[in-house]
């Protein structure tokens, strides 16, 4: 898929500076172990500390700010761009 579509940025082209970084990694010689103790993240989450699976209602003032942040409103409706199905 072209980069401008992937990034949703018009005229997106690879940067020479960034490509140099990529080439360094691509050409790097490394011993890749199948499984290393460092592959697992130290702070990986466990089931015991997961948040309770319930819906918490946001405070009213928070809801008001979220609405205020909406970029476009009309007659108390939140306006979104037209969706074209392809």
């Amino acid at each position: 898929m072209p980069l401008d579509v992937l990034s949703s940025i018009k005229g997106a082209n690879p940067s020479k500076a960034v490509e140099e970084l990529f080439i360094n990694v691509k050409n790097a010689v490394s011993e890749i172990e199948e499984k290393s103790e460092f592959e697992t993240h130290d702070q990986i989450m466990t089931v015991e500390v997961l948040r309770e699976d319930k819906v918490n209602k946001s405070p009213e003032d928070e809801i008001e700010i979220i609405k205020r942040n909406f970029p476009l409103q009309k007659d108390s409706y939140l306006v979104v761009p037209r969706v074209i199905e392809e």
Binding site: N69, P71, L72, V80, P81, R82
Partner: peptide
């Protein structure tokens, strides 16, 4: 630009 931030409106969503 849908839920917050600056939005530049155009012909369609994409």
């Amino acid at each position: 630009g849908i839920n917050y931030g600056k939005r530049s409106d155009s012909r369609n969503l994409k």
